[in-house]
């Protein structure tokens, strides 16, 4: 039978080590969610623009390579060559790092806040596959982005890489089935991530309005389909020989 115990958990729960330390906006979970949402918007803008830009693939090597060159030239002559490209890259990398850092902080907090699981794992009632797998889909996308940079930006992961020949590099890369499959899988993960993220942003930013709530899901689905559909079409086009 139970031992007599003097531990009185409800005497003062604040005596327990608080889960949160620090007082600034970013130290709060709500603040971190704002950071997740804002950096999420930046990254969403990027994946959309990236997909739209890459549609040049269908116009052929000339257009595609000119587009790559244009990206390096924007801002000239007011700014040095590649200056604005680097500004964008720095912004993008910062957003990605902040997104990751906030996610890491929130994950640790949430693990601390809920240490035990239920024995009987019932089906979730409202939470969908996307919302429950954000960490996994995020990690897959991150791993892919690192590979993708090595493959098509630095060229280290692509034996046929030639600087400046964007079109040829893409085609050469996607002619390797493993790369094409990894690309498709990563984009599906991105899709799952976007499906929850693009809906969730409004909630985190406090922009939920009952009048528009029904539209949020539609927006998330449309955005996801456009980005993922566009992206996935590229390796398929290469593998089926539509683009070569």
């Amino acid at each position: 039978m139970a031992q007599a115990t003097k531990t009185r958990p409800d005497a003062d729960p604040t005596q327990q080590r608080p889960l949160r330390r620090g007082r600034g906006l970013y130290s709060s979970a709500v603040g971190k969610k704002y950071v997740m949402a804002i950096t999420g918007i930046v990254l969403m803008g990027y994946v959309l623009a990236h997909m739209v830009g890459n549609l040049k693939l269908y116009q052929g090597a000339e257009h595609m390579n000119a587009y790559g060159e244009w990206l390096r030239e924007i801002g000239e002559p007011a700014a040095p060559r590649e200056f604005l490209l680097w500004v964008m890259r720095v912004a993008l990398i910062s957003a990605a790092l902040l997104h990751l850092h906030a996610a890491w902080g929130l994950t640790r907090l949430n693990w601390a806040a809920r240490q035990k699981r239920y024995a009987k794992r019932s089906d979730y009632i409202a939470a969908d596959f996307a919302s429950r797998t954000m960490r996994w889909s995020g990690i897959i996308v991150l791993a892919f982005v690192l590979f993708h940079l090595a493959d098509l930006t630095f060229g280290t992961a692509n034996p046929d890489f030639e600087y400046g020949l964007v079109y040829q590099n893409v085609v050469a890369s996607f002619e390797r089935p493993v790369v094409a499959v990894f690309y498709i899988v990563a984009n599906l993960a991105l899709g799952v991530h976007l499906y929850h993220g693009a809906w969730s942003i409004f909630q985190s930013l406090g922009a939920a309005n009952p009048r528009f709530n029904a539209l949020r899901r539609g927006f998330a689905i449309a955005f996801t389909l456009v980005v993922v559909g566009g992206n996935v079409s590229f390796p398929i086009a290469v593998m089926t020989g539509v683009v070569s």
Partner: peptide
């Protein structure tokens, strides 16, 4: 209230389980 809440509880991932139960 949010500061006190975060001393004890986790963060919101917008799963909507709370609303459902």
């Amino acid at each position: 209230m949010v500061d006190e809440m975060e001393a004890h509880f986790g963060s919101c991932s917008n799963h909507r389980e709370c609303e459902a139960v």
